[in-house]
Design a protein around this nucleic acid. Structure first.
Length: 618
RNA sequence: GGAGCUGUAGCUCAGUUUGGUUAGAGCGCCUGCCUGUCACGCAGGAGGUCGCGGGUUCGAACCCCGUCAGCUCCGCCA
């Protein structure tokens, strides 16, 4: 078993290097970060970048950096030629050197350096690349603007933290492959140029030269291919799959493209999938990190319950707060705003903060501002103080209301309770947003991984705009209760074998047990308003496949970038991607997207029709 | 599509609240000195369209309007 990866000792580069046999050639015989007193008196060749230089006039020290770490080089003035070269060296130049490893004098040992007990006295130096002044420093890891970092990504990637992140990502994917192959998973590549799918996110389109006017689409996920592989008789499939969705970026969402650990298995049920994935995550966590999984097996929470208790389908379970339903307490209340939310489809929710009843007015005002940003009209709250309840809505509540509330929520003096009222889904969402907002009041353990499964998603939902019933997730998910449920239950009550896996407030993946029975599929699409003919037209190839011998199957596709993010303690997904795009989906280094030549357009039978710019205001 | 924050030297930032002399600091860069540093030290120097455009004013980094860029959030992401 590999030793646990800890961020504190920052030695992942060293470990990565140790697992590789060094290629000894004219450039190097050793790695900088791995040199130790064992090599004393040894003649070595090193190659790397000038990390720092300390020129004492009569003596020059160079910290040489390669991907394993640093070695201190010493150039003595007797070596006149060497000395002249070293004097002129710029930071971040690439040099190859020869020298002898010597033990440092006891007072000169640097305990902060892995190779700090030794140094290399140079006998030769050759400058492979003399670097000009860099746009930002590599050695001093000071915050630099995102724009510069992205424009000069190749320099940013020299910096220790992000360099380690990229190496960690490589090791993680390698560990995934080893684990899954040992579990009889087969890695299969699926097409990148495929066809546009009618559901889901916006597609990226690629014009076809051979078929003017027609387009390929980049896959949003290999969803249909992996299901077809099950029909082909491969028992377990996986792929580290690029996925393309033309949607706007977030801190945990790379614009345009991202990677999933895409998996699918035949002849399994939901519980089988859960235990397989839990096994893999447990293995990866214990072998690749020093983080702890809070509960194992992962807790399972139904969609309805998670919305009621946490106000989101991706809760951070480390936050010690839960939302309470207080709807029944306000039936017939004199406070009309709350009383009016006690009808079917609406609710009154409460969120208690213990011991925060005596904060400054600013505390509550800022909370209300956040609630309004989340779409709430306001944020009612009651501070329970020694001298009695206080807050903007107290005057609307009777003594009886207040005392029922106090006992129902086990409130004590010094506490504060926040309220949300209105339509169920919107109220849950706002209160969930407030729960996350107040989560900042607690110091959450970054080394705790609080995984959970969200299960029992509804199969259908009511689309208010279109005034019709829609699939709430993947139309290919199997309804719980199969055909009987579709035929006998009210559509909005039908649940699906559809699940999400969530960790610390980040959705890692959705997955489902698929619907492999054509008749159930026609019926499900029928409820969503699609005729048999329309289904055949849009998903004919899938239905056809399922008519020709399809096993029960299901899968999941955890987001790779997000997994790396969590394990590397990064708040932004760009920190775990070698060459990310900016928020506007541009690559500032490559300059993409970019214009193409008229010749290229003509070959593709395309014409550009730019939108007219809005007239500038006078 | 909408909201917020940010933009001053190569880099990180102060200065903007209350408009007023030649816009500062640290790091980096250049020159000189320095034989045990490890964020080496010391002395000197260069380096600025205060994101851009317009306005108010005797006078704008500072106030107003517009605009551009980066980030964060909402919408969006089956």
């Amino acid at each position: 078993m590999q030793p646990p990866y800890t961020k504190d000792d920052r030695n992942i580069m060293k470990k990565a290097a140790e697992s590789t046999q060094i290629l000894k050639n004219r450039f190097r015989s050793d790695y900088c970060g791995l040199l130790s007193p064992e090599r004393e008196h040894g003649s070595v060749r090193l190659a790397g970048w000038v990390h720092r230089k300390r020129d004492h006039g009569g003596l020059i020290f160079i910290d040489l950096r390669d991907h394993t770490g640093l070695s201190q080089l010493v150039i003595q003035p007797e070596q006149q030629e060497l000395f002249a070269i070293a004097e002129q060296l710029h930071i971040e130049s690439v040099i190859c050197v020869e020298g002898v490893v010597v033990r440092r004098a006891p007072g000169a040992i640097n305990p902060r350096l892995a190779s700090g007990e030794i140094e290399v006295v140079l006998s030769q130096i050759s400058v492979e690349s003399n670097a000009q002044t860099l746009p930002f420093p590599v050695a001093d890891e000071v915050q630099t603007s995102e724009e510069l970092r992205l424009k000069y990504r190749f320099i940013d990637l020299r910096r220790e933290k992000i360099h380690e992140n990229i190496i960690f990502r490589s090791r993680l994917t390698a560990a995934m492959r080893r684990y899954l192959e040992a579990k009889d998973f087969i890695e299969i590549q699926t097409p990148i140029l495929t066809s546009s799918s009618p559901e889901g996110a916006r597609d990226f389109l690629v014009p076809s030269r051979l078929h003017p006017g027609k387009f390929y689409a980049l896959p949003q996920a290999p969803q249909q291919f992996k299901q077809l592989l099950m029909v082909s008789g491969f028992p377990r499939y996986f792929q580290i799959a690029p996925c393309f969705r033309d949607e706007d970026a977030r801190a945990d969402r790379s614009p345009g493209e991202f990677y999933q650990l895409d998996m699918e298995m035949a002849f399994i049920e939901q519980d089988d999938l859960f235990s397989i994935l839990e096994g893999m995550i447990e293995h990866l966590t214990t072998t690749m990190s020093h983080k702890r999984i809070t509960r194992f097996p992962f807790p399972r929470i139904s969609y309805k319950e998670v919305m009621n208790r946490f106000g989101t389908d991706k809760p951070d379970l480390r936050i010690p707060l839960e939302i309470s339903d207080v709807t029944p307490l306000f039936v017939g209340s004199a406070f009309k705003v709350f009383a009016n939310s006690t009808v079917e489809g609406s609710c009154v929710k409460a969120l208690v903060l213990k011991g925060r009843g005596n904060e400054s007015r600013l505390f509550y005002d800022k909370a209300e501002k956040r609630a309004k940003e989340l779409g709430s009209g306001g944020l009612a709250y009651i501070q329970f103080k020694e001298e009695g309840p206080k807050g903007p809505v107290v005057k609307f509540l009777s003594e009886a209301d207040l005392s029922t509330l106090k006992s129902h929520l086990a409130l004590e003096n010094g506490d504060v309770v926040f309220f949300g009222a209105g339509k169920w889904a919107a109220t849950c969402k706002i209160m969930g947003g407030m729960r996350t907002y107040f989560g900042d009041l607690f110091s959450l353990d970054k080394d705790e991984l609080s995984f959970c499964w969200i299960v029992d998603f509804p199969m259908f939902e009511y689309n208010e705009e279109a005034k019709k019933i829609d699939f709430s997730h993947n139309p290919f998910s199997m309804p719980q209760g199969e055909m009987e449920a579709l035929e006998t239950m009210s559509p909005l009550d039908i649940l699906a074998y559809q699940y999400d896996i969530v960790c610390n407030g980040i959705e890692l993946s959705s997955g489902a047990i698929r619907n492999h029975k054509p008749e159930i599929m026609y019926k499900a699409f029928g409820i969503a308003g699609y005729s048999r003919e329309e289904v055949d037209l849009r998903f004919g190839h899938m239905i056809e496949a399922f008519k020709l011998g399809a096993p029960p199957h299901g899968g999941i596709a955890p987001g790779l970038d997000r997994m790396v993010m969590i394990l590397c303690d990064e708040q932004n997904i760009r920190e775990v991607i070698a060459f990310p795009m900016n928020q506007q989906a541009q690559d500032l280094m490559m300059g993409s997207p970019s214009a193409v030549t008229p010749v290229q357009l003509k070959e593709l039978s395309l014409q550009i029709d730019l939108p007219k710019k809005a007239e500038p205001k006078p």
